[in-house]
Amino acid sequence: MKVVIQRCKQAQVKVQEEVVGAIGAGLMLLVGITHEDTEKDATYLADKIAGLRIFEDDDEKMNLSVQDISGSILSVSQFTLYGDCRKGKRPNFMAAARPETAEVLYDRFNELLRAKGLEVQTGQFGADMDVELTNWGPVTIILDSPQA
């Protein structure tokens, strides 16, 4: 699994002009899943993300997690994170998991985050979505699960 994490002041996702998920301060996650990913990968990333200290404390040091600030998460599935552009100019998405497999693991990943007491909003799996956010910092981190 691969997750692009953006610290944000606010974020929302729309499907056909309708807001389907929105948060205030917290983390915007773009989540990609490949063929070899398992619940072990989802658990590893949920644990890492929930405790990732990328919010500033009173001394302006990145020392607080999304849990520490009572922030929220907007999680959006993103198969294009596994786009391979090494040959030619058109991405190859063969490394991305099939939708029926990816959706199950994506849902489980979000459940694991919720089990940590986090509010998790989502986009709509497989839909054409418009994503808006105010990146705070900007701070953007890319995490891969150990098998990647």
Score class of each variant (00 low, 15 high):
Met1Glu: 08
Val4Gly: 04
Ile5Met: 05
Ile5Gly: 04
Cys8Leu: 00
Gln10His: 14
Ala11Ser: 02
Ala11Trp: 00
Ala11Gln: 04
Gln12Ala: 02
Gln12Phe: 00
Val15Ile: 02
Gln16Tyr: 02
Gln16Gly: 00
Glu17Pro: 03
Val19Met: 02
Val19Ala: 03
Val19Thr: 01
Ile23Leu: 01
Gly24Arg: 10
Ala25Glu: 10
Ala25Pro: 08
Gly26Arg: 06
Leu29Trp: 03
Leu30Ala: 12
Val31Phe: 00
Val31Arg: 03
Ile33Gly: 00
Glu36His: 12
Glu36Lys: 15
Glu36Tyr: 11
Asp37Pro: 03
Asp37Thr: 07
Lys40Cys: 06
Lys40Pro: 08
Lys40Tyr: 15
Asp41Arg: 12
Asp41His: 09
Ala42Val: 10
Ala42Pro: 09
Ala42His: 13
Thr43Asn: 15
Leu45Ser: 02
Ala46Gln: 12
Gly51His: 14
Leu52Glu: 06
Arg53Cys: 02
Ile54Lys: 10
Glu56Lys: 15
Asp57Trp: 05
Glu60Ser: 13
Lys61His: 14
Asn63Trp: 01
Leu64Trp: 07
Leu64Ile: 10
Ser65Met: 15
Val66Cys: 11
Val66Trp: 09
Val66Leu: 12
Val66Gly: 12
Gln67Thr: 11
Gln67Ile: 08
Ile69Trp: 01
Ile69Cys: 05
Ser70Lys: 15
Gly71Glu: 05
Ser72Phe: 09
Ser72His: 14
Ser72Tyr: 08
Ile73Leu: 09
Ile73Lys: 07
Leu74Gly: 05
Leu74Met: 11
Ser77Cys: 13
Gln78Glu: 14
Phe79Tyr: 10
Thr80Pro: 13
Leu81Phe: 07
Leu81Ile: 07
Leu81Met: 13
Gly83Asn: 12
Gly83Pro: 10
Asp84Pro: 02
Asp84Tyr: 05
Cys85Pro: 05
Cys85Ile: 14
Cys85Lys: 14
Cys85Ser: 14
Gly88Phe: 01
Arg90Ser: 09
Arg90Phe: 04
Pro91Val: 06
Ala95Ile: 05
Ala96Cys: 10
Ala97Val: 06
Arg98Lys: 11
Arg98Glu: 10
Glu100Val: 02
Glu100Tyr: 04
Ala102Phe: 05
Ala102Trp: 08
Glu103Ala: 08
Val104Trp: 05
Tyr106Arg: 07
Tyr106Pro: 07
Tyr106Gly: 07
Asn110Trp: 15
Glu111Trp: 13
Glu111Gln: 15
Leu112Glu: 10
Ala115Pro: 02
Lys116Thr: 04
Lys116His: 09
Glu119Gln: 14
Glu119Ser: 13
Glu119Arg: 14
Val120Gly: 06
Gln121Leu: 04
Gln121Trp: 02
Thr122Cys: 15
Thr122Leu: 12
Gly123Phe: 02
Gln124Ser: 05
Gln124Trp: 03
Phe125Asn: 09
Gly126Tyr: 11
Asp128Tyr: 01
Met129Asp: 02
Met129Gln: 05
Met129Pro: 05
Met129Thr: 04
Met129His: 01
Val131Pro: 03
Thr134Met: 09
Thr134Ser: 07
Asn135His: 08
Pro138Arg: 15
Pro138Ala: 10
Val139Asp: 03
Thr140Ala: 11
Thr140Cys: 07
Ile141Ala: 12
Leu143Asn: 11
Leu143Gln: 11
Ser145Gly: 15
Ser145His: 14
Gln147Thr: 15
Gln147Tyr: 08
Ala148Tyr: 13
